[in-house]
Design a protein around this nucleic acid. Structure first.
Lengths: 249, 249
DNA sequence: CTATGTCGGGAACGGTGTTCGTGTCAAATA
DNA sequence: TATTTGACACGAACACCGTTCCCGACATAG
């Protein structure tokens, strides 16, 4: 869309060339750069987000971006912050703290999954932006309201973030493979699971007795079910700390 | 070490040039390629492991590697498998199942940390090699011996692997930053933690009351302590499933 | 001694992030 | 109004990357 059209044809010299071909649509701001980078991310994955490609999408050269962004790393960080802004945090309700924790983890999962490939960035950077802080504050306040000891709650923030991010990251890898493979999502998944199942079944039963016997359990459940299980593991573990030190300690 | 020595100096033409400069030390096998790749990984990090660099370290050109390895992805996979071979699995003891699970997770953590940057690869690939299978079989047998329901145990294998890998991955990022930063490990960590602490303290208390109040708890604890906490969370959660369905169900 | 075939590797292709220096425009100044 | 100034845009280039093509050198077979 909005192609400037055949710029390889030289402009007539008599036409005063104050504008080579493209009018200055917009002044090229940091926000606009992040916009198109995110659009590119959602459409073609993280690998497509190169400085050159973003610049091209903006109708300019890669050098122009460095006036608004210090480099690729900062661009990724800005993208991550933008996405984090979409996460909604509930008002803490002491009676429902563990369910609220689950809901918030699901919300984080939902938002991250909507821009799945950003998880690769999220794994690779320590979040310090205002939106990341807002989420941390939210998780902390929910847990404290529920009577989770402060030290436990503080450590758990990282655990939840790490868990959600790692999960989406794994899913994004499958998406990338599927993109490279070409077929549809169901087609890809069916083939992948079939291969793994065959591999498990073909293992020598004397060396891998339990794996071979429990192929069914190992393969069962989709991504959502596994996410819920890990979340359950985490919250149950956390609840055991609260039970040990009831509420008002 | 074992530098071939100043190859930029042309060989005298009268010397019959049957061997340009370097004799064929060894026939260049897949194993040797993985060897030097791992050495490079430990010494300079994953980013230093490029096909060109590995070839150079072997005294040859990048094209030569493709006879023994299909590409960079396969090379990384071979490295991951090699590292996974170092993980030792205990003989299952039903009475100590949860402690054995902890020990195995620590062992995985130890081995992965020894080649920390491999975690980035480990996050990015679905392990299917024989050594990965051996570990999966080990974890599964420990949990089944302890009376963990098969479906729960099957799901938990992924959870443990994901947790350990993600944790080492985060640590490896700090190492990479430190490498880029230049200073010593303690110096870097002190500076990093100081910056984060200052940032937390400087937040507006009306918007981030809990974060500001609990800066101490948020910052306390090193990597090992946090790893143990997350592991504890996971195992406690798992134990709650076993208690719910005692042993023989 | 010649023919054959396998394998190593130099050179090249098309990409990447980043920097330098120049050119162009618009606003501020004289 | 004419001129200076300064900020911004960006073409070109540098040093890398993974991968492929293709040629030449070697060991072996005839």
């Amino acid at each position: 869309m909005s192609d400037t059209g055949a710029p390889e044809m030289p402009a007539p010299p008599w036409r005063s060339r104050r504008r080579p071909a493209a009018p200055p649509r917009q002044p090229l701001s940091q926000e606009r750069i992040v916009d198109v980078a995110l659009r590119l991310l959602d459409a073609e994955g993280l690998d497509a987000v190169s400085m050159r490609r973003v610049a091209q999408e903006l109708g300019t050269g890669p050098a122009s971006l460095y006036a608004h962004v210090s480099g690729k790393e900062e661009l990724f960080e800005l993208m991550r912050e933008r996405v984090a802004g979409e996460v909604r945090i509930p008002e803490p309700d002491p009676a429902r703290w563990s369910e609220q924790l689950r809901e918030t983890a699901r919300e984080m999962h939902r938002v991250l999954s909507a821009h799945a490939d950003i998880a690769r960035v999220s794994m690779a950077t320590i979040p310090t932006g205002p939106n990341a802080m807002r989420i941390a504050e939210g998780l902390l306040s929910i847990m404290l309201a529920g009577g989770v000891p402060p030290q436990i709650a503080a450590f758990t923030i990282d655990q939840i973030s790490l868990y959600v991010t790692a999960h989406v990251y794994e899913a994004s890898l499958h998406m990338a493979r599927q993109r490279a493979h070409g077929g549809s999502a169901e087609e890809y998944m069916a083939e992948f699971l079939g291969q793994v199942r065959d591999y498990f079944s073909s293992l020598p039963p004397d060396r891998f007795p339990h794996v071979v016997r429990h192929v069914g359990e190992l393969m069962s459940g989709g991504g959502d079910e596994r996410f819920e299980f890990g979340l359950d593991l985490l919250v149950r573990g956390l609840e055991s700390y609260v039970a040990a030190r009831p509420a008002g300690a």
